[in-house]
Write a protein that binds this DNA or RNA. Structure first.
Lengths: 168, 168
DNA sequence: TTGAATTTTCAAAATATATTGAAAATAATA
DNA sequence: TATTATTTTCAATATATTTTGAAAATTCAA
């Protein structure tokens, strides 16, 4: 397979993959393109490679910057802005985990804490089932929260290393 | 907070939560409703509780059954079908992990294997960056694959136990 | 069988999400 | 400062996804 074709396949399936994870197709595709590009790219480069509009490109680049996955690069003598993606996949994963934990897991735990305190007779099986379900999700969520914290703080490859020892 | 209100809040935020994970709102809401219901429910029960149509209810129940999260229950003497959800949250998580691994991770690894074999001169930095990126994603993906396999096969609470030991 | 209850299907409608593109804002240069 | 290049915004449009509901299929009991 030729590089051009391989690149296209990668970008397109990375995009499809993203949609299963609540990330929009274009954002994932821009990220994929930057991951396989040795040098920083401009908005126009991306528009051309991916056949998308200027506005779409711009919004999704900004979103990638918000997620901490892409950054602006100043190239001396160039008028246009360039962008590059973090290439270390472990850093990328840690960054995504960090953001999703903050955006999703933590608010969910806050809610569960409130809901666990529901009033009502514990002898009512509706109350009991509700409280039990909430408690067990909360317990799991707290575990995940701690585990992810350690992972986020961990050195590069730490997770791989630990997991290997544990699971070999 | 009263049970009815707490239940509604749980169902509605579980639905919103689901959309961040590529699961549709209704499917997540039905799942939430079944999780907090002590006894099996019929389609009509769910339609009423969630204010959704018969078709929608039916399709999403079937999807939940496909995912292995819900099952039909036969209640002697009853004409209608009843449904219930697995209440053990660890089993639920393991089941979801198992399915997503099969549906997403494994096909992605297959693709990466193909793409890694791209032809071209390794001295070309485009080729080099492409191959490096694909390899490192593949490496990470394989680690995740192994780790998840162990997790799926693990006894209940095994994961919590190990993680606690490891991260304490 | 027949008929009523129940479940399933799926085209059409509704809703939600993503994308465009041109105008406005901003930044860089002369 | 005026001019031009570049980036940003956002209403309108396009696309994708979800939901509805009525008809068809199935199941069950008499």
């Amino acid at each position: 397979m030729k590089l051009t074709e391989a690149k296209q396949q990668f970008i397109s399936s990375w995009g499809a993959f993203g949609t299963h994870w609540g990330i929009n197709r274009t954002m994932a595709q821009i990220h994929a393109l930057l991951l396989v590009s040795p040098d920083p790219l401009t908005q126009d480069d991306m528009m051309e490679e991916l056949n998308i509009s200027r506005g779409n490109t711009n919004m999704n680049i900004r979103e990638l910057i918000n997620w901490g996955l892409v950054e602006r690069v100043i190239i001396p003598g160039e008028r246009k802005e360039f962008f590059t993606a973090e290439k270390d996949i472990w850093k990328v994963v840690r960054q995504i985990v960090k953001e999703r934990k903050k955006r999703e897991l933590e608010p969910m735990l806050d809610l569960l804490n409130k809901l666990e305190a529901v009033e009502g007779d514990k002898r009512d099986k509706n109350v009991r089932t509700f409280v039990d379900t909430i408690s067990s999700i909360k317990k799991l969520g707290n575990q995940a929260d701690k585990t992810l914290d350690v992972m986020i703080r961990a050195e590069e490859n730490w997770f791989v290393g630990s997991m290997m020892k544990l699971f070999k």
